[in-house]
Design a protein around this nucleic acid. Structure first.
Lengths: 234, 234
DNA sequence: TCAAAAGTGTTAACCATACACCCATGC
DNA sequence: GCATGGGTGTATGGTTAACACTTTTGA
């Protein structure tokens, strides 16, 4: 990207623009966050959000997807813009404006894809994050707040689960994200009452207790209902 | 800003970054939007959102406030980041990433401040907007959606009204923003039940009907209650 | 005296919450 | 047979929604 001696000249000062991604996963117990360990200064050796510079011919969301692919190998994910961080002094090198995204991935698809080319990549439970470089702790905090709010009025929780899941898994996911216990009977009544879940003719195998039935989220049905004014709410 | 022959050189290409503001007002009947008429290409003569380039030493929100002051004279307003628009081709000149804000102002404070130095400035009812330059129609659409959602769970509607207002004015504001009629008795019951409004010993003057009592929003009280888990909801 | 908006309560339907036991399975 | 999580119903209290008339004032 740009030859060795290549430079770019403008008549007005331009900030650098990056995208950073807060990638969430869920492993049936904890909400987790994907971090990379920086190999370069500043904050060399520190953990930070995956991200990088936006190319001039590339949309912002495409840049976020590209960086995630390059740095972590993750390709299929729910991605949404979070907020843009542009404090004048947030990067010690030059003025850097970062458009932050948050992403939800099915950990089951990506659990083993831990390391990539070069950088160290790892999942951390959100309750036990290391110190992060730049202002990334603030970005994570805002992403968590957003996730917590959004999961209640849009059916995005399913993005964190495998396509087939049990109601117990779904409930544990909500409990982890909302950080509060939920009543089992009320949870089931409510979620099944929305008629967005399809019960499959399939049950858990080899579990040391009664096998749970699997369900699948019916997105088409949700979109139909949403058009007619239905509101997901949990 | 930058001397005549001054240039800025970087080793990687940098996009330009602007802030644009969607400024809402309310005049006791319609929700209105503040637009400026462009004097320069591109989109010369077209109406567009107020905005401009971010300076290198200036935070994003500060840039938005500065542009609003310069272009419209507006200083006291509620301002919140909306979304960042970065399609690679959204500006015909060069790559421009725009961090959009939305603002709520008390029209009563600013109604007469129509024109400023140079550019033509005007309020338009949101239902009767002219064609806008760039992708500003999309930005306005997203701002309206956000306002409509947010007004229901945070007490930001008051930012659009004078400090003293009647319950009728407040109801008309909500009806305008939500684009639906509300039941008067239920509306009053709900809003007064929150105990966020202070009834003043003051009534309308010279109205051709029974004079309405004035109320004032008690922000302190709201913040106290919010800390203890209270949720505004309308 | 008319027009215009202010102000005021009750009822019925619905929804949210709290709560406890039996079931199926593997070890 | 025990430990583990799956699966199920009801009763109560609170919240929302629908609804109509009287009051005050200026023109």
């Amino acid at each position: 990207m740009g030859g060795l001696a290549m430079t770019y000249t403008y008549q007005h000062p331009h900030p650098a623009v990056t995208v950073d991604a807060v990638v969430f996963g869920f492993d049936d117990a904890d909400l987790k966050l994907l971090l990379i360990q920086r190999k370069l200064a500043p904050f060399k050796g520190a953990w930070a959000l995956p991200g990088g510079f936006v190319r001039l011919d590339e949309n912002l969301e495409a840049a976020a997807r590209r960086e995630l692919m390059d740095e972590t190998g993750i390709t299929r994910l729910y991605l949404e813009q979070l907020y843009t961080f542009g404090e004048a002094d947030r990067d010690p090198r030059e003025r850097v404006i970062s458009v932050a995204y948050y992403a939800l991935v099915k950990l089951s698809d990506h659990a083993l894809q831990a390391a990539s080319d070069a950088e160290n990549v790892a999942w951390f439970p959100v309750a036990e994050l290391p110190k992060l470089g730049f202002d990334h702790e603030r970005i994570v905090e805002i992403a968590l707040k957003r996730l917590k709010a959004k999961v209640r009025y849009e059916p995005i929780g399913f993005e964190l689960l495998p396509v087939k899941f049990t109601l117990g898994e779904l409930q544990r996911l909500y409990e982890a994200v909302l950080e509060q216990p939920l009543d089992k009977r009320n949870f089931r009544k409510k979620i099944l009452g929305m008629e967005l879940l399809e019960a499959l003719d399939e049950y858990q195998q080899d579990v040391a207790h009664r096998a749970a039935q699997y369900y699948r989220f019916n997105r088409q049905r949700y979109e139909q209902l949403a058009k007619r004014g239905f509101n997901f709410e949990l």
